Amino acid sequence: MSKAYIAVPMGDPAGIGPEIVVKAIAEDSLHEEGKVVIIGDKETLKQAADITGLNNLEINEITKASEGRYQPGVLNLFNLANVDINKLKLGEIQGAAGKAAFEYIKKSVDLALDGEVDVVATTPINKEALAAGGVNYIGHTEMLADLTDTDDPLTMFEVKNLRVFFLSRHVSLRQACDMVTEERVYDYIVRCSKALERLGVKEGSIAVAGLNPHSGENGLFGDEEVAQIAPAIERAQKDGYKVEGTIPADSVFHIALNGKYDAVLSLYHDQGHIATKMVDFERTIAITNNLPFLRTSVDHGTAFDIAGTAKASAVSLVEAIKLGAKYGPKFKR
């Protein structure tokens, strides 16, 4: 099986993105996983190499992914040359940096839509910097949805043997509870099953987490499980989907981690985030599953407080690239 081409946008130039990019590329073993291209700014990456002591890293400018030299010690770069290094202030919110970060992502998406790369593995961006730069998106998911004309992108986290999908993302807990309806739960069971298949997991089994303590104890602690979730599960089972639930949230993630289920449907943001990050914070990787291409992502921010100090860990980015390499060749467009 051929190696996947993986595009990595550099992230906010004022954050830790450039540093974790050069640290990741400097890991020789990463080049055995896939063919990685960086979309960013050469001067910013040279500065990051100086900060991290990786001055021996060769930056190879390319205009096509096929021009890359995929070997240890080489960083293959689509250089957008869109940062004035003399004005860049590390660790600070800047409109120019937010605008540049968006341009890296857009170029990555263009490469993926053109079929030049198989995977986009994203690095941190900053919402305030985006806004200051006139980029009107609140985050990666919304940005990618708009750039690819995708309705309601499907988020999945993976860490070790645990995969978690989310019924809702960035809404209040009150709104998240209101979104637990029979139609939405059924729709997500179907979509999650199809997403697993796209990743090469055929006839994947899904467990639906309970919303209330002990899954509501048959209506004693809330009736969402009885009134909304159970009918959705029964309907999906009749339609041939491998789904069980509800299973109390205090045990379902542990059960899935130990191999009984291929994935868990979490009913709100923090329910699944806490579960995955307690398994391994740095190695919890996000996948956006129903785009025209596979997208993986680090699950941390720009960390302005340590930008320019060389303290940032590249573990999450390395894992995001590895996960892209794992699923990229299997992913069904």
Score class of each variant (00 low, 15 high):
Gln94Met: 15
Glu217Arg: 07
Glu116Met: 03
His140Glu: 11
Val117Ile: 10
Asn161Thr: 10
Tyr186Phe: 11
Asp110Met: 14
Ala176Gly: 04
Asp187Trp: 11
His214Trp: 00
Leu220Ile: 14
Glu225Ile: 13
Asp146Lys: 09
Val226Leu: 12
Asp178Asn: 13
Val185Glu: 08
Thr122Met: 06
Leu147Gln: 06
Glu142Val: 01
Leu196Ala: 09
Gln228Ala: 15
Thr150Tyr: 13
Cys192Gly: 10
Arg169Gln: 13
Glu225Cys: 03
His214Gln: 07
Asn218His: 05
Gly115Val: 12
Asn218Lys: 11
Ala195Thr: 10
Lys202Ser: 12
Leu199Arg: 05
Gly133Leu: 06
Arg174Asp: 13
Val171Tyr: 05
Leu154Gln: 01
Val180Trp: 02
Leu173Gln: 04
Ala97Leu: 11
Lys106Leu: 12
Ala132Trp: 04
Asp187Glu: 14
Tyr188Lys: 06
Val226Arg: 10
Asn161Cys: 02
Ser172Arg: 01
Thr122His: 03
Ala131Ile: 14
Asp151Lys: 13
Val226His: 06
Gly115Ser: 09
Val120Gly: 04
His170Ile: 08
Ala131Glu: 07
Lys127His: 15
Leu173Thr: 04
Asn136Tyr: 04
Ala131Pro: 05
Ala176Ser: 13
Lys194Cys: 05
Leu211Glu: 08
Glu217Cys: 05
Ala97Arg: 11
Lys127Glu: 13
Gln228Met: 09
Val171Gly: 05
Glu225His: 11
Ser108Ile: 00
Gly115Arg: 08
Asn218Phe: 02
Val185Gly: 09
Tyr188Ser: 01
Arg198Met: 10
Ser205Asp: 00
Asp118Val: 08
Ala209Asn: 02
Val135Asp: 04
Val109Trp: 07
Val180Ala: 00
Ser215Ile: 05
Leu144Thr: 11
Leu144Gly: 06
His140Lys: 11
Leu162His: 10
Lys160Leu: 11
Met156Gly: 08
Lys107Trp: 00
Asp149Asn: 15
Asp146Ser: 10
Asp110Pro: 12
